[in-house]
Every structure is written in structure tokens, then in C-alpha cells.
Design a protein around this nucleic acid. Sequence first.
DNA 1: TAACCTTACGAAAACGTTTGCGTGTGGATA
DNA 2: TATCCACACGCAAACGTTTTCGTAAGGTTA
Lengths: 340, 340
Amino acid sequence: MKQKVTLKQIAKELDVSISTVSKALKDSVEISLDTRQKVKAFAKLYNYKPNNIALSLKNRKTKTIGVIIPEIVHHFFTTVIGGVEKVANEKGYNVIICSSNNSFDKEVINLEMLASGSADGFILSVAKETQQKKDYHHIEETMSQGMPVVLFDRIIDELVCDKVIIDDGKGAQTATNHLLSLGCKKIAILTTVDYISVGKLRTNGYLRALRAYDITAREDYILKIEDIDNCESEISDFLEDKDVDAIFAVNELFAVTAARVLNEQGKKVPDDVSIVGFTDGILSKHFIPSLTTISQHGEEMGVRAAKLLIDKLEGEEDIPEEYKTVIIDTSLIQRQSTKK
Amino acid sequence: MKQKVTLKQIAKELDVSISTVSKALKDSVEISLDTRQKVKAFAKLYNYKPNNIALSLKNRKTKTIGVIIPEIVHHFFTTVIGGVEKVANEKGYNVIICSSNNSFDKEVINLEMLASGSADGFILSVAKETQQKKDYHHIEETMSQGMPVVLFDRIIDELVCDKVIIDDGKGAQTATNHLLSLGCKKIAILTTVDYISVGKLRTNGYLRALRAYDITAREDYILKIEDIDNCESEISDFLEDKDVDAIFAVNELFAVTAARVLNEQGKKVPDDVSIVGFTDGILSKHFIPSLTTISQHGEEMGVRAAKLLIDKLEGEEDIPEEYKTVIIDTSLIQRQSTKK
DNA sequence: TAACCTTACGAAAACGTTTGCGTGTGGATA
DNA sequence: TATCCACACGCAAACGTTTTCGTAAGGTTA
């Protein structure tokens, strides 16, 4: 097993100093052409690659971006990561991904671990628990140590940093408007409990849309789902004997589950009930009927977040700090789950 | 902006040497109780965290596992990552994830980058292009430098290393058997071109199952799909006027697309045609009808792969190398797409 | 031939740790 | 009082780089 070759070893073999080797490999004019060629040939032969760790230590930067997301098995988040990777790789950055599993503790651990030398900055979407706890000391601390943080999707208003979000309210409004423009009058919403920020924002958008159409929102048309994993029974109970002609679901799962429930209750989508979802994932695309939905443009979010972060990382140290909040446009994708 | 505090700074403040601080923090008996307490209090106050990079350099290990997968936006791979993370975190390892995007070049770049100091070992599923090119020098080189590699799912037979796979052939056989036991006689298969190893293996399993039932396989019941992204037209043409009573699809996408096509052609699933898929992803679970499928137990694969890798990483240096191939059992999940 | 300039290279510090070993101080022992 | 031993701590090397600065050798100029 041939071990990794270092400058020192090359230097020894060639009977020159470490600095000579280092300079030769960088084509420094300080070193004679002769020596340069000799060193390079040798390095190539032994497949020399500079040790990243040593470089990081020396340069005090890792050229690595840390990404922390609530769930790794999640289509939207992976599309965001895709966008981050794209930009990062173009700019010569590596990406480390960690999942907090929606746990506050794991988020803290991951962040602290990456912050202690492994990454130069962070792109993060906070865990559900963190949103509940409203404890952001770990993020604040990271920033106060000079490491930039970009928040996306599930952001925290109180934190002063770059952010990339979609206009959840506007997206929801668009979705609801679409249903209204189709002539639907009795539009129910399947949403989350309020402490999930995006759920709340989307609910508000729905309410605004109704108001603009002079339709009074009905409490009994709003379902705030507690237990996402067992949403089917909640939705089923909710929809039982309810005379709605449209449903706006704040995520994909609620949308397809509603479709499934309606199906079981003998109602047709979109003929009897139209459905609009949120998030353009696998399910929306391939479901029968395919789902009209609001696309969040996950990849674009990732791209923008990575750019913001890298700008901060490569910007001048002491220019006055200035933080941006990028709002990505959502778009309505019309498919089969809403009647024409 | 308070910068990260180092041993040196603490030492200076407290007017002791760096080594004293280091030892005090480790509760060394060499240091007086008094000093120890003072140092620890100070360290806590300033939130001292040892610099991982420096530690990695010193210890010549990073306590990091590199995971390279062909696609990040892919349910199966993310479940595997979930399993890897679980084990890794338990054992104090960090996980770096990179996607090769199915490109050979990017796989090489990612591997080399992580191999030059960022990770101690690798868990990897090779890119499509790599399977075609049959060029594995980057993986061989990584191993020859003493970094263990565990291959999973899309493995390479020629490479001598730990592997975690499912028995694709057996899984396919189980799927086909299930259809046969339901009384289906005319079973088509939707598979991939042959260079995708898992596609080929699954096709073979399908053929074996038919043979065991004394049914002659028909060429015109086998569709090898080239362009996965546009599989719908291929499947649609294939199924046109074809009098099949069952379909075995080697992945989720083919399965739901087949269902969609059948739906458009006015055939009912499962009444007219039964469908069995492969991979238990989001789609299979939530589709209407939900899909009978072969579960690959992605998380379990990740768990096993991580364990194998960590065993190698923490094992004695010079025990005779011994490589294992773990075969994860698949299981048939019966849902609504196959009639009872 | 003395002064100077190039050329080509090496020494050493720095990044932040850990750790084996050396050492000064003070008290106990002989 | 000379010897010895704990005790408590510091020095320095090592991990692999990069880079500044110093310098020896040789050639050129006045």
C-alpha cells in the first residue's frame, strides 16, 4: 500500500528542500527550469496531491460550505442542495451536508462540529424543533465568530443574515386565486399547525385571496394538521360529508392524501373537487391525475443561497455588513387536478 | 466579532504555556487542580472548541466519511444516506456527501478531492458513466493509498473491497413469482439497458422466475428503456395493443408511468393489469392505486455500509485484509396494484 | 580586485493541536 | 546540609503546507 506522498518525501528523494519542491510545483521563477521540471515529473509520477487539511490549516479556510437541512430524505431539500452544489463546484467549493432530522440538539451539534474548522460558512434551513424553541444561540454564535450564514426556506426573522425564501403567502394566494378563477367557491385548505412558519404564511395567503374575492373564510374549511405522518385519518374525517369544490394543500403529501381520500369517498378529481398543491415534487408530477401545484424552484433557491454565501466569503473583510433577503418567485404549474 | 479562541490565546491570557492549557483541558494529573479549574473556567467562558482541522492534521485522520452517490435528488439514495448518518453519528463520525451527477469526471474529482485529506474512507455508488467506461482507476488508487472504500447498490465486481448490495435477481424473481402466483401469464418487464448492472440483474431474475414456471419468455414482452427521462412514449408504444396481464417494472418511475399509460389506454390497474415495481419510495406509497413493490431497505444498506467502513477504519492496521459482501434481503410489499 | 547584482536555493515561521520529556522548585529524608 | 523525589509546568517536535527572507555562489561592472 503506497502511502500518500508529501512534499517532504519528494524533497528527500530529490535531495532538495521542501520549499524548493513547493515552489517548483507552483512554477516559481525562483527555481531553475531544470529543477522545476525534475520536481514536476517526480510529483506526477508519484501522483502528488497537496493535503487539503494542511492547506486549510495554513490558509484558515476550508473552501467548504456546510449545508444543514431538517431532512435528507426530502425531495425539496435535495433539489436545493442540487443548486448549492452546482454553484459551489463552479467556484471551487466543496459541500458538506448534514441533516438535523428536525431535532434542535442535532442541529446544534452539527453546526458546532462544522463550525469548528470544517466549513467556512453555512446554508441552513432550521429544524422544526428550533422553530418551536426559538433558541437560536448556536446560529448567532456561529455568525459572531465570523462565519456567514444563509438561511433558506424555514428562516428566522429575528436573525440578521442573508436569507433566501419564496413568498409563501403570495404563492398560496396564487394557488387560491387559480381555484377561484375556475369558479370554485367552497375552497378548503389543508395546512399545518401555526408554529411551522411556512404553513402559517400559506394559510394567510389563502385567507387574503378569499378576502379579495369577497368570500368569507369559514373555520370549518380550514384543517390544521398536527401529525403529518398520519394525516390521512385527519383529512378523511375532515372531508367526510363536507361539500367542498376545491382544496388547497400546503404541501404535496396533503394534496395526494386528499386525492386518495376523495377517491375513496367516491368523488372525482378534478370533476367534483379541484386540488392545488404546493411544492413541485415527484408525487405531483406522476400522480394520476397529475397535480396542479405551486413550484418553489428549489434548485434556484440553492443557487441563490450559494451565491450569497460565496459573495460573503470572498468579499472584503471590512466592508460594512449588508444583508439581503432574496425572494424567489413561485409559479403555478397547471396540471390535471384542476378542471379547465 | 469575536474570533474563535485558540489554546494559544487562552495560554497568553492566563500566562501559562500552551501545553499546560491543553493538558488542563484534558484533566491531566500533570497539572495542578487549581490551574485545571482556572483553565477550564476560562475555556468555557470563551467557548473554546478545539479546531478540527488542526486535530485532523495532527492525528492524520478526519473522523469523516465521504459518501458519493450518483444523484442527490433521489429517494433511494437519500434513504441510504440516512442510514449512514445514523451509524456515523453514533460513532462520532461526520459525513460528507457529494453527488457525481452520474458523471465519471465529477466522480473522479469528488473522490480525489475528498481523498486528499477530507475523509478517512468512502461509501460510494458509482455513476452510470463509470459503469459504462469501466474505468475504476480512481477508486483503486484511493484504496491503494490506504483509504477503505465500501461500494453499495451499483457496485463493481472487479473491485476487491467491501460491498453492500441487495440480491437484485432474487428480488426480481420474488416480484415475478408474486405475479405468477396471482395467475398472471403474460408478464411484461420494463427494464433498463444492459449496462446498468441492476437493470440487467433484475431482468435475469424475471427470466429465471418465468423459467421456473415453465413459461417461455417472449422478446416482445421485454422493454429495455434507453432514455429514462422520456420513458413515457417508449412505454406507451410498447404497451399499445399488447395483451399483457401484468407488468414488472425495475423501478418506481417505470411502474407509475406504466400505470399512467394503462390508464390512458383505458385499462384498469389491477383489474386488467397487475403491476409490481422495485424500490419502495414515495411514489409507490402514495400512488393510486398504491404499488406493490420490492423494498430495497435503503436505510439498512446505509447502516451496513457505514458499519463495514467504520470497522475497517478502526480495525488493526495490519490484520490480513478481508472483504465482505453484505447482501440485504429484499421484501415484497403488497399493496393495491396487484389483484388479490 | 572590490563592489554589486543575479540566480537558485534553504531556513524558518506560521496555522492549532497533542504529547514525550526535560527541568526548576520545594519539601522530605538521611 | 546534601540528596532525592514529587509536583507542576514548559519546551519542542510533529502533522503538511506556503511564503518571506536570508544567503551562497557565480558573474558582471567599475
